[in-house]
Design a protein around this nucleic acid. Structure first.
Length: 272
DNA sequence: AGTGCGACCCGAACGC
DNA sequence: TGCGTTCGGGTCGCAC
């Protein structure tokens, strides 16, 4: 489940491998992956090269000459670098071949990921990008901002942390970890959080994401990739996927419940 | 506007 | 063993 830390890891790894290489061929095997015109997509990519890779929230942004290619990995999207003569595997939906004989291949078992091409000048007017809230690492994310966003919200704080329009980058794993580290019960109405608790959420989400990026993200479902994107942060998880195991703070058993249809792990004793 | 829920997907896990 | 069923999880779109 790529969240901000995993997407950042993919960005860092890809940057070392695909920048400034001429694109020779493009093959799209699952067209619904695209929100933009497929023919135009191929025309623009062929002969072009990736100049840089950026990231906004969980969106990967490949910079071309006059365009950006936006890519969202959703649940299980992965990028592989493979030799062009290697057989195309099941679930490889987009294949971008470079003139040096290597491919960038997008692999997505569940086909949830999306790609979209936008003109450079339109990037910040693109709906998907424009609506992203502040990232935990953004120094302008403060308790005033959060209190304002939480105002009047009766939804459980867990669900609100997953809302990318408020804080951008948290997913189901880190939302649980942040709430545990903040000592906040996931079921609390967002509007009930005070300034100190908001502050705590900001601090812990920043430190948890930074630590996770340092560790190369979290690998829950183990997979091997030719990119070597196999993170270590799963070794640091305090509550996620730890149902029935003792809380590292108080020894109480970690509980698993459903919040807004999502699995949520927390300690009933430590999180008030 | 805020909220709730099914749909999109498919492999893995589960139940019998 | 083998088969059918359920689950998961980010985001969108629709209904209330």
């Amino acid at each position: 489940m790529p969240e901000l830390a995993e997407v950042e890891t993919v960005r860092n790894v890809l940057k070392k491998r695909i920048l400034n290489k001429r694109i020779d061929k493009v093959k799209v095997l699952y067209e619904k992956m695209f929100d933009s015109d497929l023919k135009e997509f191929k025309e623009i990519l062929i002969g072009n090269e990736f100049k840089d890779i950026l990231r906004v929230g969980k969106w990967l942004i490949f910079e071309l000459n006059d365009h950006y290619l936006l890519s969202h990995l959703r649940m299980e999207g992965k990028y592989f670098i493979k030799n062009s003569d290697e057989e195309v595997q099941k679930h490889e939906h987009v294949i971008i071949s470079f003139t040096d004989g290597f491919d960038l291949r997008y692999h997505d078992t569940r086909k949830f990921g999306r790609m979209k091409l936008v003109k450079k000048e339109d990037l910040w007017n693109t709906e998907e990008i424009k609506k992203q809230g502040k990232e935990p690492m953004d120094d302008t994310l403060d308790s005033t901002y959060l209190l304002d966003k939480f105002k009047g919200k009766r939804l459980p704080i867990k669900s609100v942390l997953l809302d990318q329009e408020i804080i951008s980058g948290l997913g189901n794993i880190y939302a649980d970890e942040v709430l545990y580290a903040s000592g906040v019960n996931p079921l609390r109405e967002a509007k009930s959080l005070n300034k100190e608790e908001c502050q705590k959420i900001i601090e812990t989400s920043k430190s948890i994401l930074l630590k996770s990026i340092e560790e190369g993200g979290t690998t829950i479902k183990s997979y091997t990739s030719s990119l070597g994107v196999t993170g270590n942060y799963q070794n640091y998880l305090q509550v996620h996927k730890r149902e029935g195991l003792p809380c590292n703070r108080c020894g109480n058993k970690i509980t698993r419940i459903k919040v807004g249809g999502r699995s949520t792990y927390y300690c009933e004793k430590c999180q008030k």
